[in-house]
């Protein structure tokens, strides 16, 4: 039994922490998610990039609750309404993801959230996981 990311090469779990596969510009240090082949900052001349793992915590910029089931490409099973948020992570990258482990009516803009993972369905080999944001431990939800 091992967890597998819902999209290969997008997400890893190392040393207990979740890490999204991003990219960093070698010159201007802009961090991108998902991975990019070149830096798109117009004032950056070098454009060369390197792999960069996005991890840790961030601040919730905004959120919504999806009340209708999305098209079938999203294979959450069983399905129920869930929260989606935009989280400002370190190095100025804003990442979208599900918000988990908090009641839908307790989510607030400005709250600090940790990058984590959760299963969205089970297959024979174990859970299929995606990245989520969860309240930092002990924040009291």
């Amino acid at each position: 039994m091992s967890a597998q990311p819902v999209v290969a090469h997008s997400l890893s779990v190392e040393g207990g922490g979740a890490s999204l596969a991003g990219t960093r510009c070698i010159s201007c240090r802009t961090v991108y998610f998902p991975q990019v082949i070149a830096c798109r900052n117009p004032v950056c001349e070098a454009k060369a990039v390197e792999p960069f793992g996005i991890k840790g915590s961030g601040t919730l910029h905004s959120f919504t609750i999806q009340r209708y089931r999305p098209p079938p490409l999203f294979e959450m099973d069983p399905w129920q309404p869930y929260a989606l948020g935009l989280v400002d992570m370190d190095h100025g990258v804003r990442v979208m993801g599900m918000i988990d482990d908090v009641a839908l009516d307790r989510i607030e803009i400005g709250m600090v959230l940790d990058l984590a993972t959760r299963g969205i369905r089970e297959v024979d080999d174990g859970p299929v996981i995606t990245h989520v944001f969860v309240p930092v431990a002990g924040a009291g939800t």
């Binding site: 090469h9 997008s10 082949i37 999305p70 490409l73 979208m96």
Partner: peptide, 18 residues
């Protein structure tokens, strides 16, 4: 895995209204 449109559906099911 580098296509935003694929990831928004597959990883989180984000619809346009979201």
């Amino acid at each position: 895995a580098t296509d935003h449109d694929f990831l928004r559906w597959k990883m989180m099911g984000a619809t346009n209204p979201a």
